[in-house]
Design a binder for these strands. Structure first.
Lengths: 130, 130
DNA sequence: TCTTGACCTAGAGTAGACTCCAGGTATTAA
DNA sequence: TTAATACCTGGAGTCTACTCTAGGTCAAGA
């Protein structure tokens, strides 16, 4: 039988079967193909979409935003100016978020370095206090 | 009257009065002192705790984790290894998120470039799906 | 004195993203 | 043939971090 069952897809992506059904229910995945018995069959397109969703989600995009991103991704030539504006906005957001995270990373690293170098007191706690 | 009212504290911290009451309700702040009329009075200790909470929250710690950090704060010396572990985990999370964002950024930039470069339609974009 | 505005409590409601449940069907192994 | 297993649907429940509501109190100004 072509494609993967929901169980296999769950295992492969690390998402639960419930989550996969949920994504379909809210339209994040277009209706997944069914076998003659009515069970879902996930193809490579679906898996690619799921990987995209997971990456975007790890970047703090909401499912709603991911829906928009997915539209950009698959219908890019349908309404190009609009698509382009959205893409640019998302890109700007991604860059801003990168800058924030970069800042955060430095801060956490600084705290940890202080911690390794200090004799007494907890510099992480102290750092968060001041 | 000693200390700040909830309104003044809200203004000073940028948190809403509701949020301040909420933090107290869930035990993130110990019971705040009351004046004879039963209104809250925030002292320097409370404000320090609130600053701590806000900083930690900006570092992507959940309120639950912040609760842990606050407990550890009283015995900072003894609990240093724990604090360090928590911080290290956060740092790892932040780094993973950065990597994902980087990936997403490239993908969006690629999409944008393809859109700029083509006359009508973006035939290569369908290739992104796979 | 009356009114206004800040405050009080307990508890309900919200949004996002799941997660679980009940009751039913299909496929496979014994 | 039967039992186990994986799957189906619609809908209810959960968690986080608030946010809002109702109904009441208190202190200060006109």
């Amino acid at each position: 039988m072509a494609g993967l069952s929901i169980g296999e897809t769950a295992q492969r992506t690390g998402l639960s079967a419930d989550t996969l059904r949920y994504y379909e229910k809210i339209g994040l995945l277009p209706r997944v193909a069914r076998d003659p018995g009515g069970r879902r069959r996930y193809d490579e397109r679906d898996l690619s979409r799921l990987r995209f969703i997971q990456r975007a989600q790890r970047c703090n995009f909401s499912l709603k935003e991911i829906g928009q991103l997915l539209k950009l991704r698959s219908a890019a030539d349908a309404s190009r100016p609009q698509v382009q504006r959205l893409t640019e906005r998302k890109l700007a957001e991604v860059k801003a978020q990168m800058a924030d995270l970069d800042h955060l990373q430095r801060e956490l690293e600084l705290l940890l370095n202080l911690c390794h170098g200090s004799e007494e007191g907890c510099p992480i706690i102290e750092g968060l206090e001041s």
